[in-house]
Amino acid sequence: MKFIKFVIIFFIFFYNVNIYANEASQWLKKEIDKILISYQNPDLPNENRFLMIEQTINNNFAGAGIAKFVSGKSWSSASKETKKEYIKLFKRHLALSIASLMQGYSNQEYRLTTSKFDEKNKVTLIDMEIYSDNSTIQVTWRVKQSKDRYFVIDLIVADISLVVTKRDEFNSMLKTVDYNLKELNNKLSQQNESSYNKIIN
């Protein structure tokens, strides 16, 4: 009887965990397809394509949380206005980074292979494979649920975390400006302008 009890608990527990993982996968697929549609229309001007991507990313990435994480120790000493400005600039930076990654898109196919719920950290991990002629790129999405919505909190491409890389990169830049977030905002604003021009032209 003890064994049957164990099997039942085990089965029901993993059934629930899998439901979360599958729901998150379906949501992610829908959002990825929204971005891909903008690339499948060759008549769409680059500005409009970027706006579509930016909107999708702003709606689905935990942009403010990632921005805060990436800013590291400079966050606590910054003023409210600086933080607000930084979050706005960072969200655009994130959208530009992803739009730039997508520039090489030429109708490659992708497949969401596995999804699992990390019970300890309350994060769903969704693996994706992107197929090109000669290689396959492995991507893992880290997705968190909050108030009945899902948010992407990190994207790992070929073992490299976008968020961890951004944090190292920003930390290196912040060191040169004595961890002054306001100074970083100036540099981020310039970088965004340069990246945007490259994307729309």
């Binding site: 935990a62 994480f69 950290n121 909050s146 073992d159």
Partner: peptide, 26 residues
């Protein structure tokens, strides 16, 4: 990050630090 994953022969999601990101003020 890439070398760490190669050395440990572990799934990237296990190895890569998971940012403890707050999403309550999205």
């Amino acid at each position: 990050q890439n070398r760490k994953a190669a050395i440990n022969n572990t799934d990237d999601d296990v190895l890569t630090p998971l940012p403890l990101i707050s999403i309550e003020f999205e």
